[in-house]
């Protein structure tokens, strides 16, 4: 691994610390204090909005999870941690939790693997028409979830769907499935839609960071006799490591959020709860079942879970940043 370590380029050392444009003016101390006040005033609207729409609701979620409340009335009953202990006995909640974790693992591994592979192929192999492929792969990312659900409804249709139709054409009738009706398959059908939706986005992120790796490193490793695969693992991967870590956090967020919107539009959590995920179950409990406090307790679990997983992933993947 040390071979990839290069001395800092001369340009990097020029950015010396402590040289801000303001300090070139006279009366530095007075000016800086004035600037501070100005900056604070400028930030105030944004901070106020942030506090109002981000911090306050988050705190509210935690507070509400300790109450029994239907969502509308003025009667709120404090129940302590009751909502959380009920969660442990709730089979549907445990199922939704399992589904979320399964989606998190499957979608992360596959999207990341495919995204990295496609990005490496497109940046390193100079494919003809690679901008076209990039465009095609990125398009799903700008589509609304409702459109995606409609597309996949056409793909998964058990009678005239693209998937079963293709299988019939290839005389593989035995492989035809009821993609959204089979309780063992439905989660993977949703996972495929998630993958299709997000693959282009991650590929573009990886491509942009790969494009900034200096060509000399590849030339040097090629002279040392490294194959393309070896270059990928010894040069590319270590140098975009920080980027990978960031996208891992995105994966966790999207597994929680994107799965909710897709599940809601595609299956409604069915058949019989087989594709229920944490957020869709939270929605059902908080609104349909009028157990708002219980829903908020699920919200707290989601918050803690995504926070914890992000933290663990971030810790586990920590490496000393490599520079080029």
């Amino acid at each position: 691994m040390t071979t990839t370590r290069t001395p800092p380029t001369p340009g990097a050392s020029k950015r010396a610390p402590g040289r801000s444009p303001t300090s070139t003016r006279g009366g530095a101390a007075r000016g800086r204090r004035g600037d501070g006040r100005f900056v604070a005033v400028c930030l105030l609207p944004a901070l106020a909005l942030f506090a109002l729409f981000m911090i306050w609701p988050t705190v509210s979620v935690f507070r509400m999870s300790l109450y029994t409340w239907s969502g509308f009335s003025t009667q709120m009953r404090f129940v302590g941690l009751d909502n959380f202990s009920k969660l442990l006995d709730d089979e549907q909640f445990l199922r939704a939790f399992q589904n979320t974790v399964a989606l998190l693992v499957v979608v992360t591994v596959v999207t990341m693997g495919m995204g990295l592979f496609l990005a490496a192929v497109m940046t390193r192999q100079k494919l003809r028409g690679h901008t076209f492929y990039r465009f095609v792969l990125y398009v799903p990312n700008v589509l609304s979830v409702v459109v995606i659900a409609a597309i996949f409804s056409a793909v998964y249709d058990q009678e005239n769907g693209l998937l079963n139709g293709t299988l019939r054409l290839l005389s593989l009738d035995g492989l035809q499935q009821v993609w959204l009706g089979d309780q063992k398959l439905v989660l993977y059908s949703v996972a495929t839609a998630m993958l299709w939706q997000s693959l282009g986005y991650y590929m573009v992120i990886y491509m942009s960071s790969m494009a900034s790796i200096p060509e000399e490193l590849y030339e040097a490793s090629a002279l040392d006799g490294a194959s393309a695969a070896r270059q990928f693992f010894a040069v590319t991967l270590p140098l975009i490591w920080q980027n990978l870590r960031t996208t891992l956090t995105f994966f966790i967020l999207s597994a929680v959020n994107l799965s909710f919107v897709l599940v809601r539009a595609m299956t409604g959590g069915g058949p019989d709860g087989a594709s229920e995920v944490l957020l869709s179950y939270m929605y059902k409990q908080a609104y349909t079942n009028s157990a708002y406090g219980y829903g908020m307790a699920i919200g707290v679990v989601i918050f803690a879970f995504s926070f914890l997983v992000s933290l663990l992933v971030s810790r586990a993947t920590r490496r000393e940043p490599l520079q080029f």
């Binding site: 659900a149 409609a150 409804s153 249709d157 058990q158 009821v178 993609w179 959204l180 009706g181 089979d182 539009a265 595609m266 299956t267 409604g268 069915g270 058949p271």
Partner: peptide, 8 residues
């Protein structure tokens, strides 16, 4: 069952 959802 395969069609018993909001979409289908």
């Amino acid at each position: 069952v395969g069609y018993a959802n909001e979409q289908d």
